[in-house]
Amino acid sequence: MNRQNRKSGRRSPVASVSLLLIGLLATGGAYAAFTASTASAAVDLSSPEVIDQGAKLFAANCATCHGQQAQGTQNGPSLIGVGAASVDFQVGTGRMPMQASGPQAPSKPVQFEESQIKALAAYVASLAPGPAIPSESQLTGGDVAAGGELFRINCAMCHNVAGAGGALTEGKYAPVLKGVAPVHVYEAMLTGPQNMPAFNDLNLTPDDKKNIIAYLQYNEENPSAGGLELGSLGPVSEGLFLWIFGLGGIVALTVWITAKSN
């Protein structure tokens, strides 16, 4: 009877699941290939068409809070003079457009395509001069040791010595630096987004910034020599681990030693 059912055209559940998987993979793959191809396209930030496209995107997505001429409203700051670097950081990490008002705009899935982000950056940069998006050569080839020293002096107090992030006041926090693109690290240092202080080129020179990026990348690529990192949070997570598993193990052994054999 079963066999007859199968022969009469009823598909097995495995077949439908695999069909579904194939379909998903095909559309996902095509989408990834499509977005990858658009991302790699270079955008000329000074061309009038790009600036025009950026102006339209700005009016549709940003002007509610930042004003029609990016002059700022009571809900959002003025963007005149913040530069392309600021826009590329805020929009490129998904912090803008902001989802909800709160102590801090969190990083979230990016809302725009790469070319749209560049167009927005071009529009804001056209309003007044400001920091530009760093080029690829400004991000690679830094000195890890020098970067480590600069990171410990200027960044580690908020972002943790391993870049694991940390809490600030009243719900604000310094975000985790692992997995952040070097270009966004550079732009953050240059522009000082939200409550982070800005580190202009006279405070941390372009070489200094390059070194700091090299240090962060080294940290990310090399495993901790001390073994399990426990989030690199220091005494908080390490202490908790020992209190629970270390002391717990000792208590369990003590109970076992003193219990009567059955």
Binding site: M157, G166, L168, N195, P197
Partner: peptide
């Protein structure tokens, strides 16, 4: 402790050891 957690918008300084602001 070295107090250097500076929030540039609120102008608050936070000490990381015992949360003095």
């Amino acid at each position: 402790c070295p107090v250097a957690l500076y929030e540039q918008q609120t102008h608050h300084l936070l000490c990381p050891c015992h949360q003095s602001q």
